[in-house]
Amino acid sequence: MPDSGELPSSAFATLGKRPFGFYVHIPFCVTRCGYCDFNTYTAAELGPGASHRDYADTAIEEVRLARRVLGDTDLPVETVFFGGGTPTLLAADDLVRILRAIDTEFGIAPGAEITTEANPESVGPRSLETLRAGGFTRMSFGMQSAREHVLRVLDRQHTPGRAAEAVREAREAGFAHVNLDLIYSTPGESDDDWRASLDAAIEAGPDHVSAYSLIVEDGTRLAARIRRGELPMPDDDVAADRYLIAEELLSKAGYGWYEVSNWATSEAARCRHNLLYWTGGDWWGVGPGAHSHVGGTRWWNVKHPAAYASRLAEHRSPAHAREILTPADRAVERVMLELRLLSGFPLADLTPEARPAAAHALATGLLDVNAFKSGQAVLTLNGRLLADAIIRDLT
């Protein structure tokens, strides 16, 4: 990747014709959860050359770099997503400053979706009011579970009831859109535990729920505990049963699936930023380890906050490397992403080699019959359980 951050001419061919967004990575956490392999750092892990205090200014420098690299193309920003880590470990005023820099350089589109993730214990009424007044429109809280013993296995710090309190505080601060993230199939979790977590999430009243099966990542504390025999490995069949429980309870409560792991109470409640990813939009990723995509060029930043800050201080791009996707790469990725959506994938865009597999998936009840007749490959409930296998067959 050039120090200037310059992109190949091919990246500009369709720039401005697709939705454009920003992802802002905040790499700080108070403690590291046992299952997490994200690019995050506790205070003890940061080392010299990086700090919470200077981070907003450093991120703003990358926003300005983005404007220089992308030139004068009109790119009103339709979505911004602050993720982590724990974005709300930064002062709310700092998050607002980064958002204002994006607005200054690019312009925030009218009605844009502006989300930040937060741990339930990392916000309160005052910080939520500051975020809402500063232009944020959506909060996403990491609830994970309503059972204390499950939270302990995950090394989560909040108490079981805190997520519901955070939802209430966000509503009182004026947030119309609130998400709760849940994790299922944690070692030691029972079906009743999972039902209790779903019931608690529904009762809290968010308009969006994300539910993810626990993945044991190499190098995490959880993986080490399983390897030593302290905890059992999550079971795929149990995970499938938990997914069916989630669909049952969420659908009864008025949440409809629109992506395999995401449910919303209305189309307006769907996460537009994630939909930008899933439908091939363009975005610039700010922060250490953040990934970006513009017009078929994908790149990713250096991972450590100190190296990231150093490069920007030297007026160099923080990008570590990039790849230019071939048309075949992009076609495969499109199937991988769009088939996970309620809207599905156009059958006419499948390769001739993939069409027999689509017909087989239809015959075995994994694709919706009515959607198929209308020219779309849309997963049934059983199809969602086997989404990865179906995607492999269709690519």
Score class of each variant (00 low, 15 high):
Leu366Val: 00
Gly47His: 02
Cys36Asp: 11
Cys36Tyr: 03
Phe106Val: 14
Leu95Ile: 06
Thr351Cys: 04
Gln144Lys: 07
Asp237Gly: 06
Arg334Asp: 13
Gly285Pro: 03
Ala112Glu: 08
Phe20Thr: 07
Leu339Trp: 00
Ala59Phe: 10
Phe38His: 00
Ala239Val: 13
Asp103Gln: 08
Arg272Thr: 05
Arg272His: 07
His25Leu: 10
Arg270Pro: 05
Ala354Thr: 02
Arg392Asn: 07
Ala196Lys: 07
Ala146Gln: 03
Leu75Lys: 01
Met139Gly: 01
Gly124Asn: 14
Ala253Pro: 04
Leu325Gln: 09
Leu385Tyr: 02
Arg355Gly: 03
Ala211Gln: 02
Val216Asp: 08
Thr380Asn: 01
Thr297Phe: 11
Phe372Cys: 00
Phe12Trp: 05
Arg18Phe: 12
Gly229Leu: 13
Thr364Glu: 15
Thr73Gln: 14
Gln157His: 13
Arg392His: 09
Leu367Gln: 00
Val30Ile: 13
Glu248Phe: 01
Ile108Tyr: 01
Glu61Ile: 02
Ala176Lys: 07
Arg68Lys: 12
Gly285Met: 08
Glu62Leu: 12
Ser10Gln: 12
Pro318Tyr: 11
Asp388Ser: 14
Thr137Lys: 10
Val80Asp: 04
Ser266Trp: 11
Lys252Trp: 05
Arg334Glu: 14
Gly229Asn: 09
Val153Gly: 02
Gly21Asp: 09
Glu248Gly: 00
Leu131Cys: 05
Ile390Asn: 00
Ser9Glu: 15
Gly5Met: 12
Ala387Ile: 00
Leu386Val: 00
Arg68Cys: 07
Arg100Met: 10
Pro76Gly: 06
Asp235Tyr: 08
Ser251Gln: 14
Ala43Arg: 13
Asp54Tyr: 03
Pro76Thr: 12
Val378Pro: 00
Pro27Met: 05
Ala200Asn: 02
Val209Tyr: 04
Arg126Asp: 13
Ala321Arg: 12
Cys29His: 03
Glu172Gln: 15
Ala112Tyr: 03
Val378Lys: 00
Arg298Tyr: 08
Gly205Gln: 05
Thr395Asn: 14
Leu75Gly: 01
Ile390Thr: 00
Pro352Phe: 06
Gly344Ser: 05
Ala357Asn: 09
Ala56Phe: 11
Thr279Phe: 08
Asp54Arg: 06
Leu342Val: 11
Ala363Phe: 01
Thr186Tyr: 10
Ala44Asn: 09
